[in-house]
Design a protein around this nucleic acid. Structure first.
Lengths: 325, 325
DNA sequence: TTTGACATGTCAATCGTTTGACATCATACG
DNA sequence: CGTATGATGTCAAACGATTGACATGTCAAA
């Protein structure tokens, strides 16, 4: 691979001059500029970003740690993050933690070794303390870790409220809520808080069950949901904490001969693309994934710039009513 | 951030000694080894991989270019690729081309500047010639580019055959095939070849339409499918070239009052997770995504090692029959 | 006592680029 | 003519590691 030296040699100028052309600094005549570009072309020269990174002490890399991009929500999140990362001049390092604390730790370590400019955490299985020594810009998604790490989330409480009220408003008499592991201390737990409050206020019968957001073991979903529907055959409304879980609910209802929405109304969460192409299409709470992504990247940039930013970033959600309710 | 110098200073040894500890070379006494590790711990030292990369002329980075990770197939592919990349000691640079040739070109350029060790192309919108100057290990997925770039694909012809025969075997009288843009010259086109052959051999009435694999414009899918089903109300079988398209077909059938599978049988392609949690669950052709991913990473590694490998890597597909047929 | 293994040190080059300091020489302007 | 500025050059340090060559010990075995 050609170096800046080769270019200088070929163009008959000094490396300083080539560097000047490359970085638009100092005085350069049109003639040499053209000549230099010409030689770069002929040699297929590409400046070595690794050398640049070393000198400038910035890699333009953002590390992204997610449970798994194969989960539709995180896949869509990653897509938007990548888009804005690119807009801001960053590259994205993709890591799937599979919610394994060891992998997560290892990935954080790897990112430190690679001097990423910032880390976006969409997976957080570690103790709060472990995130405090990262020593570089971090943004968490849907989790608050101490007061020194900014987070972006959507208004989970409001989302839970909207979803539950929708079911109550439709006249559901017994509502099930399927949520994630409440011990993980995610902000998503507020959805469940809202659920409890709404359901208690309206005096609606209800039942709550937890699952791990474990996309990798779908049979777990099926088992849990089937048990739920069989133990409580009078359930006529389900609020699931993700659209994927909601999809399983719909499928299993159908299989048990219950129509959706006639017999059981189902509302999901996230509004992933799949929610709109399912049948029946899924009522859900829309998280503003794109705006959350833009904000996350922006928060990294602001931390690097040392410009101002908010630590708490809670974006509004929206109820999307479709066919499943 | 602490450097190897700081560690040496603190431990009262030379950088050479620290480097020896780090890389397990030469003689090191247990005592100094411990001492050095201790100091690294206390300083929170992490070797600078950027400096290493510069010297070793290898970044341990693999660039991944996909249409979009938000598409379930590519999301799952990316997950497995990331897994094996990690196993092999690589990191993954994620890029969504959105099937835009300019973005694709720009990403390839970026990867050259960043001296990635290899590139995995899951998106290919450029002219064949443009891929020939990449000058580093490349593996393409589902596309054959000349004779010097290895590719991994699944047995598309066989897949198309299995899917079509399934529909014919179930007694379908008029079968629609919805495929991607045939001009992109993907190996996936062989599915359509197989479709034509099977349908002609059995003398089955049929109709074929093309869509761009454009996940970003789902309304396109809906419009096309709706038109199709309205112009040909006697269609009783559909072979879609992806599970997502199949999902739309199912949804639109339902909306038009046609039952699946009673009135219209539908078979998809890929066997993404969604295929199993839809209702009715989707019959489909399973691509061995995980094995394809392992192979892709392995092919990068082998090119780097200059060990032997096959240029043609076609893995078997499998018919998964579920409820939609 | 000699030899060799073990343990460490010094020194310098190297990877590819950026950048500041400073020198040189036109050319143009007042 | 003096001076400013434009255009280029030389030189060297810096980024953070690795590595080879070579020196200098200590200590134990032969």
């Amino acid at each position: 691979m050609a170096t800046i030296n080769d270019v200088a040699l070929k163009a008959g100028v000094s490396v300083t001059t080539v560097s000047r052309v490359l970085n638009n600094r100092g005085y350069i005549s049109e003639a040499t500029r053209r000549k230099v570009y010409e030689c770069m072309d002929e040699l297929g020269y590409r400046p070595n970003e690794i050398a640049r990174s070393l000198l400038k002490k910035q890699s333009n890399l953002i590390g992204l740690i997610l449970p798994s991009v194969s989960h539709p929500f995180f896949g869509e999140l990653a897509t938007h993050l990548e888009y804005y990362a690119h807009q801001y001049g960053f590259k994205l390092l993709l890591c799937n933690s599979l919610l394994d604390p060891n992998k997560e730790r290892e990935y954080i370590d790897m990112m430190k070794r690679n001097r990423v400019d910032g880390i976006i955490m969409g997976s957080h299985t570690l103790e709060v303390g472990e995130y405090k020594h990262i020593n570089r810009p971090v943004v968490t998604m849907d989790r608050r870790i101490g007061d020194n790490i900014p987070f972006v989330a959507s208004d989970n409480y409001r989302g839970g409220e909207l979803a539950t009220k929708l079911l109550v408003g439709k006249g559901c008499k017994k509502i099930a809520h399927i949520c994630g592991n409440l011990e993980l201390n995610l902000l998503a737990n507020q959805r469940s808080e809202a659920f409890k409050n709404v359901v208690n206020q309206s005096g609606t019968d209800h039942v709550m069950i937890q699952t791990d957001m474990n996309v990798f073991d779908q049979s777990q979903y099926e088992r849990i949901i089937e048990e739920l529907l069989q133990q409580h055959p009078d359930i006529d409304g389900v609020f699931a904490t993700s659209d994927i879980i909601a999809a399983f609910v719909v499928q299993i209802c159908r299989r048990l001969g219950k129509d959706v929405p006639r017999d059981v109304r189902v509302v999901g969460y996230d509004d992933v693309n799949a929610a709109s192409w399912m049948f029946p299409s899924l009522s859900t709470i829309r998280q503003p994934i794109e705006e959350m992504s833009r904000l996350a990247i922006d928060l990294i940039q602001r931390q690097l710039d040392e410009s101002e930013f908010d630590y708490h970033n809670i974006l509004p959600v929206e109820l999307i009513e479709r066919e499943s309710t």
